[in-house]
Design a protein around this nucleic acid. Structure first.
Length: 567
DNA sequence: GCCGTTTTCGGCCCGACTGTTTTCAGTCG
């Protein structure tokens, strides 16, 4: 909606900067990891940087009434159909306006017809080439999903990177954009290459066997579409000035804008080639470290480059030392053949040992007292404990814990009694049913679990499944306060389709004082390798190892997390 | 419309690529 109003303002000749403010609002809202309506309900949007009073009042109006009167008024002054055309790549506000105004086009189909009838090429300012480009673009079916899960994008990018590195002209090759910032989902897959022979590298780039079609190919950059549907962009740069190129293309867009605005206050102008001072002399930087240093800033890790205050922070003091994957000493949520896992407890444990963890917790889904008697459940727990006791490892400080993932039922109760829960070394609680309940109901269900002394932490707190299922409605500020009061951490679920809590809620919770555990929720030994994705989320939430409890030794963990049966 | 290390007015990120309008406008990232 904000993007549409920006387009309309552009046509109406409103101030360029006012127009851009609407584009910025659209970018800011689009770059949030959480749903803007949830944030509105939490805090009145004050936690979002960059939205001014006007924008916030429009959002407020929208969430209260379902529409924005001012927006309706503005849009009614535009030809109908203009906004539909804005979705077509290559068509911006001016083009959309002219096509809908002068040719009466109101749909993609109209546009295709007009191109075929040569009507577009006859407009002044348009020619045959424009017409055929527009036709092609309009006929290209919308991609099924415009974003890809981070782990999928990473796998694709690693193979592609290997291919690019085969070319002797490639000095180095890096990921860029949302992929490098480790965002939970990735749009385009972006690469940069440092080279003194960009043409050779670009020629290699387009020959990758997985390429379906080459979209653009110039002297400096190229774009292709893969058979799997993703768009991949390559940007090349000279090794001597590669630092500024990396910074420019890593973004985010909002970070770049903030960085350039900051540079201006020092009389400096930043581009992907380097930094110019007031005498217009370009200074170049082979590395990003030198680039940020020249600006008087602490090096900003890519995960923090989201314009969430990182520039002010890097100016004033060193940025927090973010948690790193080697800090992780254990994994506390996974499933075995006792529930829906593919591997046995022994196999999961063996893999955890190989990952050099100090401890690992098996947390099969809880059995229900509806289908099993208490005695049956207790005997299964006994069997699991026996199986764990038989495990032997070359290092005697590796420990396998027995936990359970207990359902928070729709009526707010837990699926197991306290008496049974106490048999486990620890218990985690999570919601698997009743997703559609009201915010009050879901919040209360989570609170019930948090205040229960048998529950050690809450797993995948928002319930979202990326690209598939929205999170349920929760009063997060209230939950975070309960977590602090009852000393209960929240899980950062590392499973790539969950990544839950989302990074922006992690930052809010962290700032309030909430602690976390990062777990894979593995359903097979292979999934235990997903830990890194949870670490990325924690990094994007500004977490140091101090906020993540499973960076502690077993002894420390037992004490802080109140793990049972560990004398 | 937004915002503050020249702060409540006056400025606002920077460049590549493309097509067409021979010098620039539109779109994109």
């Amino acid at each position: 909606m904000f993007k549409e109003i920006a387009s309309a303002y552009q046509i109406l000749g409103k101030s360029f900067f006012r127009t851009r403010a609407y584009q910025n609002a659209s970018s800011i809202i689009g770059s949030l990891s959480s749903d803007v309506k949830s944030l509105w309900e939490e805090s009145g949007l004050d936690s979002i940087q960059g939205l001014g009073d006007t924008t916030k009042s429009y959002l407020d109006e929208y969430f209260r009434t379902g529409h924005i009167v001012h927006f309706d008024t503005v849009k009614s002054q535009m030809p109908p159909g203009m906004f539909v055309l804005l979705d077509i790549p290559g068509i911006g506000p001016k083009t959309a306006y002219r096509l809908s105004k002068e040719l009466g086009i109101t749909s993609r189909e109209d546009l295709i017809k007009a191109c075929k009838q040569e009507a577009v090429a006859n407009l002044t300012g348009f020619g045959e080439k424009s017409q055929s480009d527009i036709l092609k673009s309009a006929q290209t079916p919308r991609v099924k999903k415009d974003r890809t899960l981070l782990n999928v994008a990473e796998d694709i990018a690693l193979s592609y990177q290997k291919f690019i590195l085969e070319d002797p002209n490639t000095v180095s090759c890096d990921f860029l954009g949302s992929l490098r910032r480790k965002a939970s989902t990735v749009g385009d897959i972006d690469f940069s290459v440092a080279t003194t022979n960009p043409v050779a590298v670009i020629n290699k780039f387009v020959l990758y066997p997985q390429v379906e079609q080459v979209e653009d190919k110039g002297d400096k950059k190229a774009s292709v579409i893969l058979k799997t549907g993703q768009r991949v962009d390559l940007m090349t740069g000279d090794p001597a000035s590669y630092g500024a190129l990396l910074a420019h293309l890593t973004g985010s867009k909002l970070h770049n804008i903030a960085l350039r605005t900051y540079a201006q206050t020092k009389g400096l102008s930043i581009s992907e080639y380097g930094i110019k001072d007031q005498t217009d002399v370009l200074k170049t930087f082979p590395s990003e470290e030198l680039f940020y240093k020249y600006l008087g800033l602490d090096f900003i890790p890519p995960e923090l480059r989201e314009d969430r205050g990182e520039i002010d922070y890097a100016k004033a003091k060193p940025l927090p030392k973010l948690i790193d994957q080697p800090d992780m000493r254990g994994d506390l949520q996974m499933h075995s053949t006792y529930s829906d896992g593919a591997n046995t407890i022994a196999e999961m444990a063996q893999k955890g040992f190989k990952l050099e963890y100090e401890y690992l917790g098996i947390t099969d889904h809880s059995l229900s007292l509806n289908t099993k008697t208490k005695q049956e459940i207790l005997s299964i727990i006994k069997a699991q404990k026996h199986e764990i006791a038989q495990l032997k490892y070359s290092k005697d400080d590796f420990k396998v814990l027995l936990g359970t993932e207990c359902n928070i039922l729709s009526n707010g109760e837990l699926s197991l009694s306290d008496e049974i829960l106490q048999e486990y070394d620890y218990a985690i609680a999570s919601i698997h049913t009743g997703f559609d309940q009201s915010k009050e109901q879901i919040t209360q269900r989570l609170i019930n679990a948090i205040i229960n002394p048998s529950i050690n932490f809450i797993a995948h707190p928002t319930g979202r499944v990326l690209l598939e299922r929205d999170p349920y409605d929760v009063d997060w500020r209230k939950i975070f306060n309960y977590c602090i009061q009852y000393n209960k951490p929240l899980e950062i679920n590392a499973f790539p389709s969950r990544l839950d809590l989302p990074d922006d809620l992690v930052k809010i919770a962290k700032d309030m004082g909430v602690k976390f555990v990062i777990n894979t929720d593995a359903h097979s030994t292979v999934h235990l390798d997903y830990m890194k994705y949870g670490v990325y989320v924690a990094r994007r939430g500004w977490c140091t190892k101090e906020e993540i409890l499973n960076t502690l030794s077993l002894k420390g963990l037992v004490k802080i997390l109140k793990i049972r049966n560990q004398d």
